[in-house]
Every structure is written in structure tokens, then in C-alpha cells.
Design a protein around this nucleic acid. Structure first.
Lengths: 116, 116
DNA sequence: AGGCTGTATCGAAGTTTGTCTATGCCATGG
DNA sequence: CCATGGCATAGACAAACTTCGATACAGCCT
């Protein structure tokens, strides 16, 4: 499969991002790669209280309630948000550890080398 | 539909992330949401020279050459990388403007409010 | 010019994703 | 204790994505 000749450049020394790590990080970015989920995250993050009730998120979109629930589940599984039930209602909040980690990763890409 | 009753919380004041903007940003995150593309970006970014020849990227994966070419195209369309042909070979480099913008967005999420 | 090599484009197959309706679970409140 | 409302899960289906082989295009070299 197309092994380059010899005159192009030096061979790869090492992959900066391991296969396994890339798969894990891709899961988080994939969760961010949908307009609805991005807006959900933004809605949650923009609250001074730090949390939003699902009953407030659902009517903000032109989508069915199960669809919003599904998107929230993906955000939760990606570690981007956390949920807590208080009585009748469920509240979602951002997990800054995850967003910070992703921000640091992207910064390192433009900075110099890819870090963890 | 499910319009909530009245006892939950106050209504939404405004969406922090417009629908159109969310769609645009989601495209970039979607490009990042694949292990192969993440590793490609990492490989390109980790080079001191700032650029990598495609002939070096292709054999680094257990995938066909058209598949790598396709992933590079998506990264380019998302504004994450740039390509330049020099003679026989094509070189890819990271566009720091884009990665920095995404990093800033994620930082703002954990910081306080969602910014542009 | 002709052949060779590196890269991109073109359909096509299989899998994943986003959305819906229908239904189930949990907590509240008569 | 049963009815009601908020939220999650299950199954179904269309659209999108990832991958491939085949092919086309672009430079180099003899």
C-alpha cells in the first residue's frame, strides 16, 4: 500500500497521539459535533447558577422530548455534563474538568506539540 | 411539545449560542470527532517544521490511501489544516487560528459564559 | 512522449447517527 | 392508593458517515 520511495522525508519517529487515547478523545469531540448538543451545553454553561432543569431545556428546541433526552445522555456519557435529580426535576451542569482538558488539548496543537 | 407547567424555574432569557453559529462550530468539532482525524492532526502538529507530507501520513495508518485523503479533506474543509502542493508531494499544516478559536470556546464554557 | 509515482475524486457497501412514536419509571399530590 | 406529570428507555427508520476498490489527475524522470 504505497510505501513511499526514499526522497520525501524522514520516517515517522513516533505517534504523538496513541490510538487508544485518540479514540477516547474522539468520543468527546463527537459529542460536541452536533448543533443541538452544542446549544445545550451553551445553555447549561451560560446559567449563573451553573445548572439548568431539563424542563427548561426541552422547550428551547423544536425537537421532541426524547430527542433532547438522548442528546443529554450523549453529553453525559462523554463526561461533558453531569445530572442530578431533585424531586420531580433533573438538573444538568457542566463538568469543567472535561471542557478544560479539551481546551488544553487544542491549545497544545497550535502551541507546539500535542500533549495529553 | 411538553410546555412545562409553572413551578419549575424562570423562562429562558436568551440563547447564548445562536442556531447558525452552533451549526458552524459543530462542523469543526465533528471533524475532530474521529480517532483517525485526531491522530492525523496530532501528527501534523507534532512536527517541528509545522508541516507533514501526505506520503508520510498515509503509511502511518492501517487504512487505504483514499480513506486518508478523505479524512484530510474533511480536516481542510473544517478549517483545521491547510494544504500546499510542492512538486510531487502535498504538505499539510495546522491552522492555529481555528484550533485556538475552539480552545477559547471550550475555555469560556467552563469559565463563565459562552462566548464566540 | 511515455511511463511511473503521489494524491484526489468517484460510486458503492456497511455501519453509525439523529429523530420520531410508544412506553416505562419515578416522584408528587389528591 | 391511584392519577398525573417529568424524564428516560426501546424500537424503527431515514440520513449521514467511514471505508473500500477503481479510476482520474498532476508532476517527475528516462
Amino acid at each position: 500500500m504505497s510505501n513511499q520511495g526514499e526522497g520525501c522525508c524522514e520516517p515517522l519517529s513516533e505517534e504523538p497521539l496513541a490510538e487508544e487515547q485518540a479514540a477516547e478523545l474522539a468520543t468527546v469531540f463527537k459529542a460536541l459535533g452536533d448543533p443541538v448538543r452544542l446549544r445545550l451545553l451553551s445553555l447549561i454553561a451560560s446559567r449563573p447558577s451553573g445548572e439548568v432543569c431539563v424542563c427548561e431545556l426541552t422547550p428551547a428546541f423544536d425537537l421532541s422530548q426524547p430527542t433532547i433526552s438522548h442528546h443529554l445522555k450523549l453529553l453525559r456519557q462523554a463526561g461533558l455534563v453531569d445530572s442530578e435529580r431533585r424531586g420531580t426535576w433533573v438538573y444538568y451542569r457542566v463538568r469543567p474538568e472535561t471542557t478544560d482538558r479539551m481546551a488544553a488539548l487544542l491549545s497544545s496543537v497550535s502551541g507546539d506539540r500535542a500533549a495529553v
